[in-house]
Amino acid sequence: MPWIEAISADDIDRDDVMRWDYGGRTYAIYRTEDDEFFASDGLCTHEKVHLADGLLMDYEIECPKHNGRFDIRDGSARRAPVCEALRTYPVKVDVGMIYVELPD
């Protein structure tokens, strides 16, 4: 599974989320208040809304359309109307760049 260079860590504010498109798919990359980074599929599993427009609260991302929530650490559904978990991906930061490990 390749590590793909995504975006610069400086592109995301702390406690925020950013959209990243790659290979015809869309992802969300998160930076927590404690400067941890996470990545997941970019669209809510409920109605395919971009999570990058949502609100990151600690380790939960809230969908901007219906206020459903996911845990960004494992993608688990945390609040209705979200029922289906979100796919998450390993992330590492190297020399200021964020790398996301995507499946082949």
Partner: peptide, 10 residues
């Protein structure tokens, strides 16, 4: 009504 309102927003 939770689900009804979610549909209303969609």
């Amino acid at each position: 009504w939770r689900w009804s309102h979610m549909r209303h927003h969609t």
